[in-house]
Simulated scan of single mutants.
Amino acid sequence: MQHGEYLHVGRLVSTHGIRGEVRVLPDTDFPEERFAPGNELFLLHPSLSEPLILRIEKSRPHKNVWLVKFTQWSDINEVEPFKDGKLVVSKEDIVPVQEDEGEFYFHQIVGCDVITTEGRHLGKVQEILQLPANDVWVVRPDPKGKDLLLPYIDEVVKQVDTKKKQIIIKWMEGLE
């Protein structure tokens, strides 16, 4: 599988203890599901020519990370070479979301055309910033244009159609 065929769910940031447990910085809205015992994740790392399949033995949240024990590793020395590796799942292993209730994956939003309720094309979503108050969608009008920052709030985002890759927004004072 190519790297584009995966969804990132976390990053292996460091070891924890001497028995092969690792600290994982989650990159998923579903850490309880992704890091549940028995689940398999793929590890991508520059030292690996192929993704390494890892099975979760146990896991638990700890501060801003998850402590995860994989069945394949029983000692700190087995884990050390893979620090900063990316933990991923196949895109087919996607957790269903309630799109009609405003739930979307980032990869569904990035690349969507943004159009005002008056029909003016503003550009495409380039990235999503996760801020404490709300997410902000970065919209690029053209390769040389200045980015537009759209808050993902009900007053601005009126409709999201991931199948058409189109987002309808209500233009508000102060967005430019």
Rank of each mutant, 00 (worst) to 15 (best):
H3D: 12
D161I: 03
G102L: 13
H8S: 12
K69G: 02
V88F: 05
E80M: 03
V79Q: 06
V79G: 02
D154P: 06
L67H: 11
I128Y: 12
D84E: 09
S90V: 01
M1V: 13
S49P: 05
F35I: 02
D147N: 10
K164W: 01
D135M: 11
D75S: 08
I76M: 09
N64Q: 13
E21P: 00
L131C: 10
L87C: 11
K63M: 11
D161C: 08
I128S: 01
D135G: 06
D142S: 10
E118A: 15
D113V: 06
H107C: 13
D135C: 12
E33Q: 13
H8E: 15
F35H: 01
G20L: 04
R34T: 03
Y6F: 14
I128V: 15
D135T: 02
D142T: 11
L87N: 12
E99F: 03
I94E: 15
F104C: 09
R11H: 07
K58D: 14
F42E: 06
E21V: 08
D93P: 00
V139F: 04
S14K: 08
D147A: 09
F82Y: 15
V138F: 07
V89F: 07
K69S: 07
N77P: 00
E101A: 13
Q130G: 11
L87K: 11
S74Y: 04
D84M: 09
S90K: 05
E78M: 03
V97C: 04
K164R: 15
Y152A: 10
P31S: 01
R19C: 06
V156Y: 06
G4T: 15
V139T: 10
L129G: 01
I115E: 14
Q2C: 02
E78H: 11
R120Y: 15
W66E: 05
S74H: 12
E101T: 03
T71Q: 04
I169F: 06
L7R: 14
I115V: 13
Q72N: 03
L7M: 15
Y6K: 09
Q166I: 02
D93E: 15
E21C: 06
I56E: 11
S47Y: 01
W66R: 07
C112T: 15
H107N: 12
Q72E: 15
H8M: 07
V9N: 00
L67S: 08
G4P: 02
K165M: 13
H121V: 12
H107R: 13
E32L: 14
E176N: 12
I53C: 04
K58I: 01
E80Y: 07
V136P: 04
R19L: 13
D147V: 03
W73D: 08
V110D: 03
E50W: 01
I94L: 14
F106Q: 14
R55F: 05
D75H: 09
R34N: 12
N77M: 10
S90W: 07
N64V: 10
V9F: 09
R120A: 12
V9E: 05
R55S: 12
G17A: 02
F35G: 02
C112G: 11
K124D: 03
L149H: 11
K91S: 04
E50V: 05
W171M: 07
A36S: 11
D161N: 15
L54G: 04
E32A: 09
I76N: 05
F35C: 03
I167F: 00
T71C: 06
L52Q: 05
R11W: 02
K124V: 07
K146M: 07
